[in-house]
Amino acid sequence: MEKVFSRPNSMTKTPFHYCPGCDHGVVHRLVGECIDELGVADRTIGVASVGCSVFSFDYFGFDFISAAHGRAPAVGTGIKRVRPGSIVFTYQGDGDLAAIGTGEIIHAANRGEKITVVFINNAIYGMTGGQMAPTTLVGMKTATTPYGRDAQLCGYPIRFSEIIATLEAPAYVTRVAVNTPANLMRAKKAIKNAFQLQKDGKGFSFVEVVSICPTNWGKAPNEAHKWLAENMLPVFPLGTLRDSAGIEKA
């Protein structure tokens, strides 16, 4: 019988530790498929961050390093500057990238580091138990906003793709989701574009994936994806904000 679906070669057999229904597993797989399809697994170096994806290195078979909270873009910078021929990517959540790692991501983007950033935005800190993230929606209840996020006290959800897109150097900035099959296919294309640009030496690429956290949102996965479409996407609209190399048209 012909095998029509299997684990990407660049991924390991280790079962995901993620909660049932979490988008991390889906996005990991998309990264693995893209690395396989581009044929760059033997020269890819991943940078894991802190949060639920702290063990992302367990699921990929290529070289990996674990960074401190928020510092992955700086670590990726150090690696890429020494090994410009390698494919370097960071995989970061919203607590990691949009809060403690604000300085590192902005300046890696502004220098146009030739790395790829996969940014999972699920509007909450997952690993530490569901605290407010910079991306938490106004009114959203979390462990540290039990009465809902009050914009007068905590400000508004921060839109990182838009911020990155104000800079001149980044080559590709896009926001996707994996909540429907159609969005998932677009997300796959975006991640592949991002790695393709890096392979071509064309500069900094940034893919934000608007995601769910069924456990800390207190919602079943299907319900969470529905909630994402109704509540997250109006605040974090999908689409490409920068494509200076025109890869989406290519």
Partner: peptide, 17 residues
């Protein structure tokens, strides 16, 4: 780098190579 924190983490990445 953008900060000493950024710099030492770049060192961490470069040293790892």
């Amino acid at each position: 780098a953008e900060s000493e924190i950024g710099a030492i983490n770049m060192v961490y990445g470069a040293a790892a190579t």
